[in-house]
Write a protein that binds this DNA or RNA. Sequence first.
RNA 1: UGGGGGAUAGUUUAGCGGUAAAACUCCCGGCUCUGACCCGGGCAUCCUUGGUUCGAAUCCAGGUCCCCCAGCCA
Length: 560
Amino acid sequence: MADTETTEAGRDFVRDIVQADLDAGRVQSVVTRFPPEPNGYLHIGHAKSICLNFGIATEFGGRSHLRFDDTNPVKEEQEFIDAIQRDVNWLGFQWDALHHASDYFEQLYEWAEHLIRTGHAYVDDTPPDQMRAQRGTLTEPGQNSPFRMRSVEENLDLFRRMRAGEYPNGTRVLRAKIDMASGNMNLRDPVLYRILHASHPRTGDAWKIYPTYDYAHGQSDAIEGITHSICTLEFEAHRPLYDWCLDNLPVPSRPRQYEFARLNITYTVLSKRVLTTLVRDGVVSGWDDPRMPTIAGIRRRGVPAVALREFVKRVGVARANSIVDMALLDATIRDTLNPVAPRRMAVLRPLKLVIENYPEGQTEPLTARNHPDNPEAGERQVTFGRELYVERDDFMENPPKKFYRLSPGKEVRLRYGFFVTCQSVVKDAAGEVVELRCTYDPASRGGNAPDGRKVQATIHWVSAADAVRAEVRLYNPLFNRPDPGAEGGDVMADLNPDSVEVLRDALVEPALASAMVGEAVQFERQGYFCADPDGTAERPVFNRTVGLRDSWAKVSGKPG
RNA sequence: UGGGGGAUAGUUUAGCGGUAAAACUCCCGGCUCUGACCCGGGCAUCCUUGGUUCGAAUCCAGGUCCCCCAGCCA
């Protein structure tokens, strides 16, 4: 079941490692961290990492930190820092400590001088393009920088002047002195510090030099006593550098890095760079656009946090690159919502239905269950009357085989209401069906005929008397290819032009007018929806979280 | 063509020397006042070749394919 979250250990290779370390006494207590860079909103790929890091801490009785990897002020913003905390909390996790790599700038700086003093780092004046040329290629070794043999004194002096802001951006860097011939490019004297005259969200203008990720990350882990530093596969080749720094510095603890495969999902893209572009170019309404794979977007679409956690669990953790089928996310959302979402009736594309043998001006209350499998969810009243609205898709004048719904001469059940039979149709000048004329069987009140006769279909409806007009937004995948950008290399070329369909004239039962924002409801026979903050009491707005499975759509070949 | 990693159903995972398991997808059928849910059934040359072994997805050797690395991004 969706809400039974597994707690047993050893379900993936990372947990196996943690368990083994604990068993062997290599670590007394596990400490993990989730280290986002505040340069964008968190997406579902981050959710996987969050669940892994915080989940492990919880399962093994350890601790987990939230640490902002804020070493590049030119890309980072306070808005992102706030959004990230909000999203981690919403996902259901609470950090044992909140840190910033920038909290360690002074310590990191002192250690940099330590590396200089021990002959492990030097200041390089080589311009960027030249440095690139000197780095060699994948198959050819690089060349030593002419500044590689500077004295400790000169390096110290230069580095202190860099800190003091005496030099412009890009003129000098501090480099680790490792091996320009290494097969691992990351070990060819990587840059540890660069000059950046930029204001930092937290340290302001205090610093003119900033540490790189490679230099800051491991030491930050060590300062915090992180035991298992879990990151994604692309950092694998950086591990030797991570270890090199730790081995050459008097750090207080010795963390270890482990890598797992990042999450990919079909028909969307989990790349901060691309997501940032979508927001910046106005392709979507913002980071929380319901089409976005961001935690904020997914939340606004109506997906509960527990569904996201369950999805991450179903996906698993491994070291093999993979692309998860979007259908798995959808199935997980349905599985989570189905047992709890109250049922309501909403007609997305209304078609008027008049019951000719029902007394004019009369209405009557009917009882509808809030959940078919859970009596405790209670009941509600819906108003029945002579004029109703049903779904356009539930009527066909010339139905194909296997079409169970309304068509001329056909009898169906109106959910929780009566059996009705279509007698005739009214068309407009263009020949479009604009109204169904029906008769009903008064004896079938509540939905069952006393003579025991059956109908093939039960359709939903709303009453003309008290239905509320609403806007309904139907979301579809943001991209029209399972692997955006895989073919032409241009991700934007694969954008789905129909990723959202707005229905402005939907009619919903009155009980829906007071739906709370973000609370999931099921529009019977259609899908799970939630009220969007854009709506008002007079004019509610609903987002489709995910559609119900629709085997008729498959048979009829129509898109869901 | 350097270095580092990875290959188990359509997809994602489990399996840790004893004869391939689960979820999703898909297909067939049943049930039904949601064509939903639910319930049956079906869907695997374990990348490949050879070796070790009574026995290999698991161990060994060779091969193939895929991914990552040449930012003063993370």
